[in-house]
Amino acid sequence: MNARERMEAAINLKPVDRVPNAPFTEAPVCNYYGSTFRAALLEGPQMLEAHMKSLEEFKFDWVMLGMGLIGGIIPEALDCQVSYPEDVFPIIKKTTIFSMEDVDRIAKKNMFTKRMDSFLEGVSLLKKEFKDEVPIACEYVSPFTIATRLRGTNEIMMDIYENPELVHALQEAIVPLDIAIGKALIEAGVDYIFYGADMECPVLLSPNHYREFVHEPTTRVCNELSRLGSKVLPHMCGDIVKTGIVDMLLEMDIHGIMPGNLTQEKVLDIRKLKEKVKDRICIFDNINPNGPLLIGKPEEVAKETLEHLEKAKGMNGYIFSTAGTSSPFTPKENYLAMDKEVANFQWR
């Protein structure tokens, strides 16, 4: 199987020749092979070079992009003041939504800035080079998470009690923009929309507020992107099983789910999640990108990886990953240890 066949088989819960390995590699890869972190996040040719080189050394089954898109390009296109440092993620220096009038302004924005076009060019270049053998995934975010970037997280969280109309109206304005960018990504060559529910996860927001404020606009975007041909894969930290969030996610047209294991102490029981989702969607299991992978030794990374694989052994629709973004300073030998462990694991 090539990478695409392997990923497609797993997503469709069919047999695979080995466990697909689909980690969030964008930042480390940029650092290992890119001209600068900033350029490899944002600019087409540098992005292409970094990811192509990574696939010569690693056995990853996808290429994951999008940190520059969700962290900088989208907020900037919607009037936030953004800086793009050389060695860290884009930084939102100034938010842009202060009143309902601002929401009207946002609704009329043209999202396709020069930076957006450059990013889309990078996707197209990768698509052409891969000849459809390696799928392209792109990080993407919900209307609620975009809203927090435009208005400020504290402000949106307080608005839920003090100005709920603004929370609804802002997301209503964002939904068509979110769909328009998603459509452009799919047309440029993105196969999988990796849908980050960063700010509405049950670590931050109650399930009741998720249902009241987030679920409906998110569903509209996910369903439309799915209809347009992308595989839609939500990613959410926290205990999505215990809080019942997973049941709401299953109401959407999604193809897989990734719980976020951001600590080793609070790893979601993959078997319990499987009981919930049954054979409806695939599961992206993941190790903590800030644990041994970042600060440990290769043998510790191999051990953690193996523990996850053993627990899920034989499960259909299983894909291995990391729980969200890895640091660009993640040691390469640690990533190689993880990669090797997944590639050599006897699955059945």
Binding site: M157, M158, L204, S206
Partner: peptide
């Protein structure tokens, strides 16, 4: 798990 971020912020306010 009874309170989340919005409740924390409102209580603090």
């Amino acid at each position: 798990g009874e309170f989340f971020v919005p409740e924390m912020l409102m209580a603090a306010k």
